[in-house]
Nucleic acid binder design. Structure first.
Lengths: 210, 210
DNA sequence: CCCAAACTTGAACCTTGACTCATGTTTCAG
DNA sequence: CTGAAACATGAGTCAAGGTTCAAGTTTGGG
């Protein structure tokens, strides 16, 4: 897309043509997720990936042109998986505020299960900035649309329509930091507790009411 | 602090004993901020730093033990500068919500002036995680205290006191993402506009009122 | 079966850049 | 003034790890 080559090959390695090839590609990708997640981009070694995958060093280059290319493929992969996971959790929510709550809870639960998520997606900021921006821009776009729709349905407080986007970014930032603090750093509150508090904050607001 | 050595020397290079030394140290630190900010930790080169500073390669090692050490010193430095800048902007605010608004506006303005801030502090997550955590933990602690005090003064909506901390993290995440999007990525809204929208969000909430 | 394409292998190559150190210069306290 | 400590210099050392490649092995369509 934002890629000059644009082909599917460029996005997820070279397409294998045999069953063996497909299986190997999958193993290399999974090994890469482990290696990058554990050691970070720069400390990760191609030999680390191939050893985990149980293949020879050269095999890696049958599927990816470079270290950076696997990393990009991985980020896109996890970005997509995250969006899908949240979308599923939210599906069928009766209204926007309920959707927010379900989405946030699912998100925090998700990062607990896949701690390599942050290590990989956030590091993309410094290794493949275009993919990083694409990730959050995609997220923010969908989010804005949902807020706008809810606002037009009269489900949430009205406001200028130009506020949808900043609101979306604010909510995303909230989720990302809560995910980091309560999903990865320390689990002293459950995803549900965190989601309750955060959603109460943005639903009811801090202003005192009589 | 969290450092085994604990001395001031370990935090900001070796302490120079002459005027010339202090001047050189300052230039090296400034050069390092530029180099790390422009190229990121791993692409930054010590020779890049010393060239910018106009000193020989070896001089660097008169002041810092390693590449990682300057980086840590720099992160602490910028962390402190950020907190100070926000604290000054907030000083004398009549109430918490006003303080929030002023703080956020100041923060976004600050990152616009010093775009290397994100590049450096956020990359610390992958280069010196302890300093990164220290940065946000310090921020969150102060924030929580402020919220708790305001709550006890009856200035903001009441709630369980266990909510202060998650609320603080939510607000920090909001600020960081708004700073990234509207401070660095694109300046399509002014810091004041962004702050207005975001603070309205957490003051009034999204729930519709009759 | 058969063989061309697909895939696998791992030693060797090669760049890069952090860090050392022996030598020289500058500073400043006494 | 002076000499010892502080500071500056930059060529050389060294390890790490990404990438190449030529020689094999396996697969699958015809």
């Amino acid at each position: 897309m934002a890629d000059a080559t644009g082909t599917i090959e460029a996005m997820l390695g070279k397409v294998p043509r045999t069953e063996r090839g497909r299986k190997t590609l999958r193993r290399v990708l999974e090994a890469a997720a482990l290696e990058f997640g554990e050691r970070g981009y720069h400390d990760a070694a191609i030999t680390g990936i191939t050893q985990r995958a149980g293949v020879a060093l050269g095999t890696f280059y049958t599927y990816f042109d470079s270290k950076e290319k696997v990393f990009r493929a991985l980020v896109r992969d996890m970005s997509q998986a995250t969006r899908q996971h949240v979308a599923e959790a939210v599906r069928g929510a009766p209204d926007r505020l309920t959707a927010e709550r379900l989405g946030l809870e699912a998100f925090i639960g998700f990062v607990r299960q896949r701690r390599e998520l942050y290590r990989i997606i956030e590091e993309a900021q410094f290794v493949a900035e275009d993919v990083y921006r694409e990730h959050y821009l995609t997220f923010a776009e969908g989010y804005s649309r949902n807020l706008a729709a809810a606002r037009e349905r009269g489900e949430i407080a009205e406001g200028a329509d130009s506020a949808d986007e900043p609101r979306a970014w604010a909510l995303i930032g909230m989720s990302v930091f809560l995910g980091m603090r309560y999903g990865i750093w320390e689990e002293d509150l459950s995803p549900a507790e965190v989601a309750d508090i955060a959603i109460d904050l943005v639903s009811e607001g801090l202003r005192k009411r009589s």
